[in-house]
Structures are given as structure tokens and as C-alpha cells.
């Protein structure tokens, strides 16, 4: 979403499709890790959080067992709670829409919504369209990936692993015009990458929350002067 001229619909569809493509590699990797077709689909339908899903099958694939897989998925899911905190006052969900909206609260729907600030209507549209588009493409293409299984070979041969990094970069790109957020992004990416050598998968991304808190405290101190 480099251009503000692009409509929210086009952005949502693009994000949904791009993320869905990555679902092929999730489906294939999950079956390769030893989950069956329906266990793989249950993760995409019920967990519906790419980072947590990859963590679950990735840790399970190492032979670590079910409990570490559950814990890593759970820890990596924390950030969805932070997204929900940001989204709650924007979305003002009530009744059945609250759990539905909660389930669609993921990296992509929050990021597209965030990119439409400060327009509330566009933020809401971005959230729903992206959440629904990702849900549909992610589940359809997870099924395709799980069925193709070994037939697709190594997802990395298709560059699907690199597509994910590019997609996440695109989601924060509009925010990086602000020099403070650019610095935060660079420090966070470096921190997570560096810490990955020392702590288990899933934890480094959580620790970037500490970087954000440090920036936040500096911001608060600056305001109180």
C-alpha cells in the first residue's frame, strides 16, 4: 500500500491474496510436519494467526512434542491482543460482531486499518475487508497446500518464504515516513533477529514489545517537559 490513492478495497484484496499465497506454504509445511489434513485446516480456521500457526507446526516438526508447540503458538498470539486494544475504540464492536471481529484481529487486518488513519470509516472498512479476504484466501490456499503436500516440493523454491517478509514490510511502509517509527522499526527488526540466536522461536518478536515500550517512555518523558 505505497500509494494513498489505492482504494481500501484494492489494498484489502491484495493483502488477502498475498497472505493467502503464503497459506499454500503453511498447508504444505503442516502436512510435512506430521499433522493431517483436518488438523491443518483446524489451525487455519480456528487459530487463524499465521505466526502462531507456523510456530505450532514448526516446533512440532522439531520433535519437541505438543506442549511446546502449544506454548509457542500462545506466546506468539499475544500481539493480536495488542492489535485488538488498538482496534477496539476504532471498531466499537458489540454483540456477535465482537467475537467475529476478535477472530479476524490479525497482523494484516490491523495493519491495513492502521494505514487508513485517521479516517474512522476507512479504518473499519480496511479491517473488515482485509480480515474477511485473508480468512477466505488463507483457508482455501491452506487446503490447496495441504492437499498438494509434498507435490509442491520445498515452498522456499517458490520464494514463498521471502514473500512473507516483503508483505510485512509493505504493511508498515506508510508508517516509516515518520522518522521515529522508522528508527523503531529498524531497532526492532535488528533486536528480533539478533535475539533469535539465544531464545526459542516466537520469543524474539515478543521482546520487540520491550523496544516499543522504551520508545513510548521516551515519548511520554518528552511530552511532560
Amino acid at each position: 500500500m505505497p500509494s494513498e490513492a489505492q482504494s481500501v478495497k484494492a489494498i484489502s484484496f491484495g493483502v488477502g491474496f498475498a497472505t493467502g499465497l503464503y497459506g499454500i506454504s503453511f498447508g504444505a509445511l503442516s502436512v510435512a510436519a506430521g499433522l493431517d489434513f483436518w488438523q491443518t485446516m483446524a489451525l487455519s480456521l480456528l487459530m487463524f494467526s499465521g505466526g502462531s500457526q507456523f510456530a505450532f507446526v514448526g516446533v512440532f516438526a522439531t520433535g519437541a512434542g505438543v506442549v511446546p508447540a502449544v506454548l509457542s503458538a500462545w506466546l506468539l498470539g499475544v500481539r493480536n491482543g495488542f492489535y485488538a486494544i488498538r482496534l477496539a475504540p476504532v471498531m466499537s464492536l458489540s454483540g456477535i460482531l465482537k467475537p467475529v471481529g476478535a477472530q479476524l484481529t490479525i497482523d494484516e487486518s490491523n495493519a491495513v486499518s492502521l494505514s487508513q488513519e485517521p479516517d474512522i470509516a476507512k479504518q473499519r472498512q480496511g479491517f473488515w475487508l482485509t480480515g474477511i479476504a485473508v480468512f477466505i484466501f488463507w483457508n482455501l490456499l491452506t487446503a490447496v497446500g495441504a492437499l498438494l503436500g509434498s507435490a509442491i516440493g520445498n515452498p522456499a523454491d517458490w520464494g514463498l518464504d521471502a514473500a512473507a517478509g516483503a508483505a510485512f514490510l509493505g504493511l508498515i511502509w506508510p508508517r516509516l515516513k515518520e522518522s521515529k517509527l522508522l528508527l523503531l522499526a529498524v531497532v526492532s527488526a535488528f533486536t528480533a533477529t539478533y535475539l533469535s540466536s539465544f531464545v526459542p522461536a516466537g520469543i524474539p518478536v515478543l521482546l520487540t514489545a520491550g523496544v516499543a515500550v522504551i520508545f513510548w517512555i521516551i515519548e511520554l518523558l518528552g511530552k511532560s517537559k
Partner: peptide, 28 residues
């Protein structure tokens, strides 16, 4: 959550974690 400084923290957390994911998915 309507407290502006809490909303500011939530926005900072989003950028930090997504950037962390970019780092992990690209270099690890």
C-alpha cells in the same frame, strides 16, 4: 484504551512487532 498515550503505545507495539517479524522472516 481511549487514553491517547495507551493508543500511542498500541501503535508503537504494532510497528515494533511487525518489523520484528520482517527481521525474523528475512534473516533467520
Amino acid at each position: 484504551v481511549q487514553n491517547p498515550s495507551i493508543r500511542s503505545l498500541a501503535a508503537l507495539l504494532t510497528v515494533a512487532m511487525l518489523a520484528g517479524l520482517v527481521g525474523i522472516q528475512t534473516f533467520v
